[in-house]
Design a protein around this nucleic acid. Structure first.
Lengths: 368, 368
DNA sequence: TAAGTCAACAAAATCGGTTTCGGAGATCGA
DNA sequence: TCGATCTCCGAAACCGATTTTGTTGACTTA
């Protein structure tokens, strides 16, 4: 592979000025025991030669990399998560201001992910980790804690004590969502969720249940379905719930991707979203605004979250107590046009859909 | 900041086995002048102690980082480009197989971008660069070439000679698009493009013009509009073109984001996309499938492109001649449902729209 | 049997910085 | 005037690997 650039080293600068290299280093690192005259000459030479210290050499001595790591999960061929790309953007922006860099790797499985974490730590390529998409029992967090390696989690785990995290109050958001739908007049409210290993999926489902309970509405297990967090999953989820004897008139979805799939199901069977069926997502993806109808959703700024988490990690590296670095943010409901008062009762919806499902037997997708 | 982990070094291994550390290094790097017995003992100790060489120390000596860099442009507050996130995903996957890592940084301006490139090179944090979103005259590429630093571009520049690149044949795709629309019966075909500094935007516009010329259709400058590459830009572009005296019945858009905005404009003014107005995008974003109607678009697999570019860069680092590493791929038209034969003539479309624009003076959005 | 070869490894140099240690002058205090 | 203190900086150790050079004993070869 490529050889090192013929770049200028600290020795070149030292020789050019006629001082020891240690002196150059001290000038550059703002030591106080340097005379003004020497400082100026060194700085001039640095300028003239265009010297920049080698990060590698400095890291070796300092035992620090000025680099943070993130391992992003990539599904089975499914595309990248749009949430994550904004999240990374936010991290990178925050780090840029501090002169740190971000090392991004991907992992296609749980095992691969932890293996990558281990490798990056063992080879000392990063100073700390940002863990995303926390699981209820997260092996990455277990590993990092066990090895006392600095990290910050975006999202909590079952036991959220003893480490730094930033999370959204998912329970509150979904309880809120239920309340909102109920106040619009919905009495049967469905929930399309994700895999229960994912902590946020669990939290959102719990929030849904808590919301019902707070309203004194009996929880009907039939109205809950768990799917993969993709548009296809949302389609399947809507199909499952709306085909019930007594279908929900509103669907609360754990993510925007699910909601988009659910909207597609309704479109396919001629149900008017926002009237016949209300659909609410979560993520605030920009594209939601351009759907038909524009998607009502909970928004969290992924970019802001990224910046926040990055700064928290810096704090951890600076020696702050991780336990003091735990923050909970609120997600806000952005009302657009996919929610509204129910146009029909659950029974009417059921019969309308029954007709349509018969007319247009569940063939492959059409018109596309 | 954090101190180095109390991790096991090559000296620990050497001491444990009772050999010189050079011997351990040679075992690990498969030198031949090591007896089988020693090799085994060293390997056993490595296993037992869980030793992994420090990337930093190795890099210092070898002058190589096993890390590639990418600088992604981030708009003025606008979110991350969904294309880029899949692209990065593709890169990371390819690198993972080779044990390399990817350093991701963001830049909010042209200056910032080149400054970041300089810093990463000077501090020797990366071995090579992947340049995305090439501009017609790209300062990054000029810099990298001038300093003879290894890189691969995703997209070409005005002068595409002398460096490695991977690009899509944008001209061919858009010429093809024009032909397709013409064969559907469209005679006035509009083009919504992006800033002409971006090379792909230029290529796509040229392809549009070439397509018209090949068909012997006169090129009407009025039917071309350039916008920012966002949904808002698409909305504005559609507005500009459809408000013409003689509006186009089909809109060819340089990106999916533009197309999505154009679709929204049509929806807002009651124009049926795929009949009243045909809209074709470019990018093949997954979300296009879930729009109403599903978006007809040119697809290029961002992920595949990422992998491809990464492997090309490895080749460059391995000393291959960059000039031999230039590849052009074809984009395929994915027909979904936003294109079709024109339901009305340009005149009919114009008068229909005139009525609607008057009726519904440019108010905020409505619940559809 | 002495000189030459070779296998297998130890020792030391090296990469490019940071940091510790210590020493030469200048300055200060008594 | 002389030791004590400072100021400023050179010299060298050090970080943890890789790579070069050198050494030793065993084995050939003449």
């Amino acid at each position: 592979m490529s050889r090192l650039r013929g770049s200028v080293t600290i020795d070149d600068v030292a020789r050019h000025v006629g001082v020891a290299k240690g002196t150059v280093s001290r000038v550059l690192n703002n030591y106080t025991d340097i005379s003004e005259a020497t400082r100026k000459r060194v700085l001039a030479a640095v300028q003239e030669l265009g010297y920049q210290p080698s990060a590698t050499a400095r890291n070796l001595k300092r035992g620090r990399q000025d680099t943070l790591g993130i391992v992003i999960p990539v599904g089975h061929g499914s595309g990248a998560d749009p949430f994550l790309s904004e999240f990374i953007d936010g991290i990178a922006r925050a780090l840029d201001e501090l002169g740190l860099d971000l090392l991004v790797t991907t992992a296609h499985s749980r095992e691969h992910m932890i293996e990558t974490v281990k490798r990056l730590i063992a080879r000392r390529k990063v100073d700390g980790f940002i863990v995303t998409r926390t699981e209820v029992d997260d092996p990455r967090i277990a590993y990092l804690r066990e090895h006392n390696f600095p990290f910050v989690a975006h999202g909590r785990t079952r036991d959220p004590s003893g480490y730094a995290w930033f999370d959204i109050d998912n329970e509150a958001a979904f309880a809120d969502g239920v309340r909102h739908l109920y106040s619009l007049g919905h009495e049967r409210i469905g929930f399309i969720g994700g895999p229960m290993e994912l902590n946020f999926a669990l939290q959102r489902r719990d929030g849904y249940r808590q919301g019902l309970e707070a309203l004194g509405v009996a929880h009907d297990p039939e109205l809950e379905t768990l799917q993969l967090l993709t548009e296809k999953g949302g389609f399947a989820g809507a199909e499952a719930l709306l085909s019930l004897e007594a279908p929900p008139t509103a669907l609360l979805c754990a993510t925007d991707a699910l909601a988009i799939g659910a909207v597609q199901f309704c479109r396919k069977f001629g149900l008017k979203v926002g009237a016949d069926v209300t659909i609410v997502g979560y993520d605030g993806l920009p594209v939601g605004e351009y759907l038909d109808p524009p998607l009502t959703t909970f928004s969290q700024s992924a970019q802001e979250a990224g910046g926040r988490v990055a700064r928290m990690l810096i704090d951890v590296l600076d020696g702050k107590n991780p336990t003091d670095l735990q923050a909970l943010a609120t997600a806000n409901l952005i009302r657009r046009a996919s929610d509204g008062a129910p146009a029909n009762s659950s029974e009417a919806l059921a019969s309308a859909l029954r007709d349509r499902l018969n007319q247009q037997p569940h063939s492959g997708r059409k018109g596309e």
